[in-house]
């Protein structure tokens, strides 16, 4: 437990909290999804620091691979031109 590990862990956890806050309070949906992908990558680094490499493997495969693909697909399907006007009043809050 040197000072360097404290710097690394402090930076990592502060970045995770800030990233979660900014993605939850973001107005642009696509920006929120990109921030969520970045959050998943930082989560994988947090599992590594907690000495759980098996969970880091699962998190890297799922958050970097699967979740981002699914969310981008859904956001693209929602945003695509549609005869029904999109309900924008539920976006603010």
């Amino acid at each position: 437990m040197t000072a360097l590990t404290w710097i690394f862990d402090g930076l990592l956890t502060a970045a995770m909290v800030y990233l979660a806050w900014s993605l939850l309070s973001e107005r642009d949906l696509f920006k929120a999804v990109v921030l969520f992908i970045a959050f998943g990558l930082l989560m994988a680094l947090a599992w590594v620091r907690l000495r759980a490499p098996d969970i880091a493997l699962a998190e890297a495969a799922i958050s970097a691979g699967l979740s981002g693909v699914l969310l981008l697909d859904a956001v693209g399907a929602i945003r695509s031109p549609n005869p029904v006007p999109e309900d924008t009043s539920s976006d603010s809050g």
């Binding site: 993605l23 939850l24 929120a32 969310l71 809050g93």
Partner: peptide
């Protein structure tokens, strides 16, 4: 705490799914 707060106050379903993941 941040996730459950956003899960309660948001109504957009993609935002709810993101908050649930957090």
């Amino acid at each position: 705490s941040m996730g459950i707060h956003a899960f309660v106050i948001r109504t957009h379903l993609v935002r709810r799914i993101l908050a649930f993941n957090i």
